[in-house]
């Protein structure tokens, strides 16, 4: 195995990590702020992919990628108003069950609308082709996915650390009751964060669509890796989401190289280890 092989693996790992980051960051911040576990996050990602594929079929790729996050955010808005708001004070089991029900319902709704056949979304011309790095050819589109993840990371980081809104979100994650006492409209903050999280899931679905075939089950398939990422990283923190994503991406990719039989078991062993040693993840949003 030469150096180009390792570069290829490295790029694959990074690309997987960035895609997972897009998904997990929304989920983790929603949890950190609202203590709400949305298992249907993966279903929203699948919807994003479907919407992007449908829109792109008539109006081109870029329209699809732009429309999908908005459409999914609107759906998030509806879900928030009718379901999530009422489930906020319930225990984790009720939340898990309601969002589990949502997974079922959304899965069949995508089937009803788009059918069982896989949709395909073509890579736009601008991003088609390959670039060569260190002797290997790598698809431009995969670099694009990494770039989207990186941009999202930078923008979110700046927003959380430099803006008033970010300060309010951090205060809310730290102690929502205290934040409410300080005059922050926590309810509106929840709503906003939930919608942004949904939009990010939609975006992830849209950019992932050309890499995979768009099928109803894609939402369920991605859910488990996303949950692993946020539990390893620590619920509620941006840092946790990115570290968790990188860990997952690298373990999965390089695990497949070194021990193909054990690659998928390894990540669960890692997760179990983290849960035993540090039950609240590597970088929990709250101290302790």
């Amino acid at each position: 195995m030469d150096i180009s092989f390792w570069i290829l693996q490295l790029l694959n790992a990074l690309q997987l990590s960035m895609l997972l980051f897009l998904l997990s960051v929304g989920l983790t911040v929603i949890f950190g702020l609202m203590h709400f576990v949305n298992l249907a996050h993966g279903a929203l990602y699948a919807l994003g992919a479907y919407i992007a594929a449908s829109v792109a079929a008539s109006m081109g790729y870029w329209a699809g990628v732009l429309v999908a996050p908005f459409a999914v955010a609107v759906l998030g808005l509806i879900l928030y108003q009718f379901l999530i708001k009422r489930m906020r004070s319930s225990g984790p089991m009720a939340q898990v069950l309601v969002t589990f029900g949502l997974i079922f319902a959304l899965l069949d709704i995508t089937r009803l609308i788009w059918g069982d056949l896989a949709l395909a979304l073509d890579v736009p011309e601008l991003l088609a082709g390959r670039v060569s790095i260190g002797g290997i050819e790598y698809p431009v589109y995969r670099f694009f996915v990494m770039a989207v993840g990186l941009v999202a990371l930078v923008v979110l980081h700046l927003m959380l650390t430099k803006t008033q809104l970010g300060a309010m979100i951090r205060a809310g994650v730290d102690n929502d009751k205290m934040a409410a006492c300080l005059g922050i409209n926590v309810e509106r903050l929840f709503f906003l964060v939930f919608c942004v999280g949904c939009a990010l899931a939609g975006l992830a679905g849209a950019v992932a669509a050309p890499l995979l075939s768009v099928v109803p089950e894609m939402g369920v398939d991605i859910l488990i890796p996303t949950l692993i990422v946020i539990v390893i990283g620590g619920l509620g923190s941006l840092k946790g989401a990115i570290v968790g994503s990188l860990i997952y991406g690298f373990v999965q990719t390089f695990g497949a190289v070194f021990a193909p039989q054990l690659a998928s078991v390894m990540i669960y062993v890692l997760l179990a280890l983290v849960l035993v040693m540090r039950p609240s993840g590597l970088f929990p949003a709250k101290g302790g």
């Binding site: 939340q95 039989q261 849960l275 035993v276 039950p279 609240s280």
Partner: peptide
């Protein structure tokens, strides 16, 4: 192992073990 965790972490931990068994069987 899981009894030391609570709430959503317990759910995740059991999910992890279930998936571990699934992947193991799937790959074996």
């Amino acid at each position: 192992i899981c009894s030391k965790t609570h709430g959503i972490y317990f759910i995740m931990a059991t999910l992890a073990f279930g998936q571990m068994a699934y992947s193991f069987v799937f790959e074996s």
